[in-house]
Nucleic acid binder design. Structure first.
Lengths: 391, 391
DNA sequence: GGCACTTCGTTGCACCGGGCAAAAAAGTGG
DNA sequence: CCACTTTTTTGCCCGGTGCAACGAAGTGCC
């Protein structure tokens, strides 16, 4: 009745969501028969993805006690590389998406993509050998801003780095011996939120990312929506920004041109709020209590919220997650976001429908690894075939 | 390897798309094995959904000739009821979505939903008995503007009719004895376009409907996206309209308030272009060569196109279909639509990515029936169980 | 301790749907 | 009538699931 691996995938997902949990409960949660649960648990345990835990069993007075199963986080891991403007973020995650090791590697020569990727791969191998040599790496996920062709594993265009048609997957696979999956920033984050985030595990989700790039990702019941040209989620040039600001795209008032980290930091710098045009500095100032800095970040949040409201109306997802510095670091911004979305959206969202991102400073590493974890969770039994070790 | 009925569904879909077609070709198109094609064809033929046709066989010189199969349009039909402001449109469609009989039934008392629905049901039964008594009805689809809860089959809110929480499905099922499915206007049309429209059979599609209601529907790889509250596609209150026009929602500049049929007809009337505030009259005038009328409709199209471009950027579907009077009836509007979308969208759409609706005056009937046809095409073997005749 | 009772987990069996491969069918050309 | 080609069917096996019976692991009562 189900596609191959679907049962195992649903089962693994239920275990991920509901912590250590008894097989009977899994059956109830997934709609599978107890028999199927047993069999799939055995299969997944055989692959090292699940374990029986001797957890504290809250015995319920009658009957045979539970023997809870849980995700096995001690045997495998997944690697992630996030490619940013100035550095790569490397991360090793366990199967619950928790960061077990992390490293930031600045680009030696940003123009030389081969060097950047080779360095990242080598450092990743070392990171693994030094920190978690006992864990078997299952794969490598790569997240990058810009235009990514997921199918081909190619970074088609990364504007700020100036890369074009870089075969990221093949380069990294050759260097690490791992299966590599590449996806865009926003989509990776969206999936990470859905799998591991505080957002819960809603069926549909929209992720709005605001950094130097402004991008959105849409997940519906059918999975991540990539769009005809892998270009879905193009909110960068919505006319929600300051009409006085010209955008490289040729028009003015574009969202990205107005609220990108660079643009906003510059604005704060010019206003004399901070001493260098750096968004981090602006955030630090606001956290430290600088009222002008806070006000500026709240103002940015208000603009971002209009985009969130738009997405909310058009896609009507269960939840909209926003990754933006202010929203993550300042409660004032989180409040402003909710208030503004509630005011602009047509269908009034419940307060829990608009959430800041859940991954603090690890966002990027989690996102990258999530690309690979997503694939594993989608078809866990597939690990049978390509048992490739290599790092 | 596939969910139940998926193979049959894919097969039927391929036959629908590629006209009479040989089994081998179907296997190639669907990726199924020839054996599976044979078996599923037999099953579907047994249900009366497919037939072997003795078509003109273009023999290719060697080997056993094709025996093409095609959708069986002579045995079954599907009924549709579209509920509009002043009347219901009834239609009987064959399995290719072609209208075989049609009837428009004005509401006797628009406030009395029971009477409206009962009348429609009775007239539908009569329509069937008079025109196509030999065809077995498989089900009834209902499309309505406003807020529809598809699960429950309830019309939650129809603003212009003032209906609230009308259990459309149960009322009509009781009266006709047919399985009834209800969905919103835009989603029904979107599905109709995808199944039967000139839009081809793209995986992802956005439908923008502009009538007295402005609404959009999103279909992605995973199917029609309904959203958390069945409210996806809420473009009515995007701030793309005339900021001077107040909307009942409390804000101003809303798209619907500006470009709805009613609003625009009124505008044309006040400008002295037509003698009554009727959008049909405006359309007729434009078709007859009235330059002012044409200009007004083109102007509306431009505004509508901005919404289309927005949807194009955010969702990035294979194709955007627009159902709006001007675009359908006037080549000038169709051209303006394409030009404006190309100018406003960030990712430049190919010319064929923005299309006017394909169903001329039958739109509404087709849309309604498509709700049911969609379900049949999604799981054709399911007809085994509820073989309910009744009309 | 033994037994009834309850709930959890497993195992045996049949079924469904699909792929593979061999066979049958339906043409043409010699 | 036979060789040849391509389409279609049939037989067989296999993976995965549900159902139902069974085994397991506790408590509580006598």
């Amino acid at each position: 009745m189900n596609p191959r691996g679907t049962a195992a995938s649903a089962l693994l997902g239920a275990v991920l969501r509901h912590g250590p949990v008894a097989r009977t409960t899994i059956a109830r949660l997934t709609g599978l028969s107890p028999a199927a649960v047993t069999r799939n648990c055995a299969a997944l345990a055989g692959l090292g993805l699940l374990t029986e835990v001797a957890g504290p069993l809250p015995y319920r007075g009658m009957g045979r006690p539970h023997t809870p199963v849980d995700v096995e986080t001690g045997r495998h891991l997944v690697a992630g590389i996030h490619i940013a403007h100035e550095h790569c973020t490397l991360a090793l995650l366990d199967l619950r998406g928790r960061v077990r090791a992390r490293l930031r590697v600045p680009h030696r020569d940003p123009d030389d993509h081969e060097d950047v990727l080779a360095t990242a791969a080598d450092r990743l191998v070392r990171l693994h050998a030094e920190h978690l040599p006992g864990h078997v790496p299952l794969g490598l996920g790569v997240a990058a801003g810009g235009w990514v062709d997921t199918e081909a594993g190619v970074l088609v265009e990364h504007t700020s780095l100036g890369w074009r048609d870089v075969p990221v997957r093949d380069l990294l696979a050759a260097r690490t011996g791992l299966p590599v999956l590449v996806d865009s920033h926003a989509r990776a984050l969206a999936r990470a939120e859905q799998l591991f985030g505080a957002a819960g595990h809603h069926e549909s989700l929209v992720h709005l990312f605001v950094g130097n790039v402004v991008d959105a990702a849409i997940i519906t019941g059918g999975g991540t929506h990539r769009g005809a040209r892998s270009a879905a989620g193009g909110v960068a040039h919505l006319a929600l920004g300051d009409p006085a600001i010209d955008c490289p795209c040729g028009r003015s008032g574009c969202l990205e041109a107005t609220v990108s980290d660079r643009a906003w930091a510059w604005r704060a710098y010019e206003a004399g709020v901070i001493s260098r045009p750096s968004i981090t500095e602006l955030g630090d100032a606001a956290v430290a209590g600088n009222a002008a800095a806070t006000a500026l970040l709240v103002e940015r949040t208000r603009i971002v919220a209009r985009a969130a409201a738009l997405l909310f109306d058009i896609v009507n997802p269960d939840v909209v997650v926003v990754t933006e510095l202010g929203v993550i670091r300042l409660p004032e911004c989180a409040r402003a976001l909710r208030a503004e979305v509630a005011a602009s959206a047509r269908v009034c969202p419940s307060p829990s429908a608009v959430l800041p991102s859940s991954f603090g400073p690890d966002v990027l590493g989690v996102a990258a690894g999530a690309v690979q974890l997503d694939a594993i969770y989608a078809d866990p039994l597939n690990l049978r075939n390509p048992i490739r070790l290599g790092v």
